[in-house]
């Protein structure tokens, strides 16, 4: 359900762009998705097809670019890259990590005609 809302947000951005750039059709949408963004990629892909129907992006390909997760370790005070939200610090093994990046959810670009 959340992914459906996100796709409607994507559609809004695309339709705004379509008006300001004289876009006939969108062929590809590239979206950056952070490791910790909470987005279920298969659900996003499913919702994308459904929500784009009837828009300039109908039939467009959704390309998802994974963005790494980064966190500040409150034990060693280093910024580290982690794959898992609950992973320990790869430097010191500490368990108190505050995410600082990886919650991105951004449309990077559109391939259009």
């Amino acid at each position: 359900m959340h992914e459906m809302s996100l796709c409607e947000g994507i559609r809004t951005v695309i339709e705004d762009q379509a008006r300001s750039h004289d876009i006939k059709a969108v062929r590809r949408v590239r979206v950056e998705i952070g490791r910790f963004s909470g987005v279920e990629k298969s659900a996003l892909e499913f919702a994308f097809d459904v929500v784009m129907r009837g828009s300039v992006a109908q039939g467009a390909t959704l390309e998802m670019i994974d963005m790494p997760g980064r966190a500040m370790c409150y034990d060693c005070m280093h910024e580290v890259e982690i794959d898992d939200r609950l992973a320990p610090c790869p430097d010191c093994g500490g368990g108190k990590l505050m995410p600082v990046a990886g919650d991105e959810l951004r449309i990077k670009d559109l391939e259009v005609i």
């Binding site: 996100l6 947000g9 994507i10 809004t12 951005v13 339709e15 762009q17 379509a18 008006r19 750039h21 004289d22 876009i23 006939k24 062929r27 979206v31 009837g54 828009s55 300039v56 959810l105 951004r106 449309i107 990077k108 670009d109 559109l110 391939e111 259009v112 005609i113």
Partner: peptide, 28 residues
């Protein structure tokens, strides 16, 4: 929506091009 250039014929615009947006999906 649906009344913009999307439904308009734009001569000479058949070439594919890339538009960089860098907009958050949650921007609205």
């Amino acid at each position: 929506f649906g009344t913009g250039p999307a439904g308009v014929e734009v001569p000479g615009m058949s070439q594919e091009r890339l538009i960089e947006i860098e907009t958050g999906i949650m921007a609205k």
